[in-house]
Design a protein around this nucleic acid. Structure first.
Ligand code: FES
Ligand code: FES
Lengths: 146, 146
DNA sequence: ATAATCTCTACTATGTTAGTAGAGTATACT
DNA sequence: AGTATACTCTACTAACATAGTAGAGATTAT
């Protein structure tokens, strides 16, 4: 798994919209400024998120975007998968990867599967409501070896 | 984290060399054929692995590559990090990433840190001796959601 | 000597990412 | 009706990373 800028932007945007859930829709321009995301890029991302049903939009003068579901009903994992694709650390689980021949007996595949499972376990449990609650609280869990 | 072809090739190569530990050195050509890796690409990878101290080489007629340390003393994590870089799912832990401004208060960073930790926990514990033992045993842990 | 094998640097083709550009459509308000 | 505001859609592009390829050079066993 790799979170791209697009994925990162999508997550930050949804979190912002989660904070404004059931308020007036937020304009792309506001989001763009507040989150420091290039406007035209954000447009595309929001369209994608809309097509996937995460957000909904309203055009015209008082238009903008709002979350389509409750923050508690959107997980981090859903968004990440939608924007940045499969969670697995290697493409051999996809169709595209030609490197793995004897998939059945490959010892690595088992490991990659464990890795995928353990990532899923984290990001599929966290909802945007959880994240909202955590905002402005200390986070002090930084010790993994880069 | 994303395992590239280069990384995948490196791991498979080291596993092969682990299987031939303390035997005669293995020629690039043999490795290339056996593992189905483009020869010239494998050359580069082996040079990298040599510079990092994972393998050692011998030139000339009966030359080839062999593992520089016992299989039990090389972990998956070491090799992956060396070839494919940091484990973290997002670049905001590196210097390169400009997307994250208020790093201190970002709720996502905490999550990415958890993800990194949990990946590390897996791949830093598995050695190539472990993998050797597992070779030819059934692996049936395939259930993570792609 | 020479054949086999590793060593090193440079080059290239392809794909992905991170945007930009611009014309079009819907809505609120006057 | 007209206009300003804001979303919609498609296409294009620049920069970078990946996955190789190419070729000349150095070492060693026989
Ligand atoms: S890494 Fe894909 S089957 Fe081995
Ligand atoms: S994702 Fe990098 S600090 Fe928030």
């Amino acid at each position: 798994m790799k979170i791209t800028y697009k994925g990162d932007y999508a997550l930050k945007t949804i979190l912002d919209l989660a904070g404004n859930f059931r308020s007036a829709p937020v304009a792309i321009n506001d989001l763009s400024k507040r989150l420091d995301i290039p406007t035209k890029f954000l447009e595309q991302i929001l369209l994608d998120l809309k097509r996937a049903g995460f957000v909904e939009s309203r055009r015209g003068k008082i238009g903008g975007y709002s979350l389509a579901k409750e923050p508690a009903k959107i997980t981090l994992g859903e968004v990440v998968r939608f924007i940045d694709g499969p969670i697995g650390p290697i493409a051999c689980v996809d169709k595209q990867y030609s490197g793995c021949h004897d998939v059945e007996s490959c010892v690595f595949r088992n490991i990659w599967s464990q890795v995928g499972n353990s990532i899923s376990k984290i990001i599929d449990q966290v909802t945007f409501e959880d994240l909202l609650k955590r905002t402005n609280k200390a986070n002090k869990t930084f010790n993994y070896q880069i």
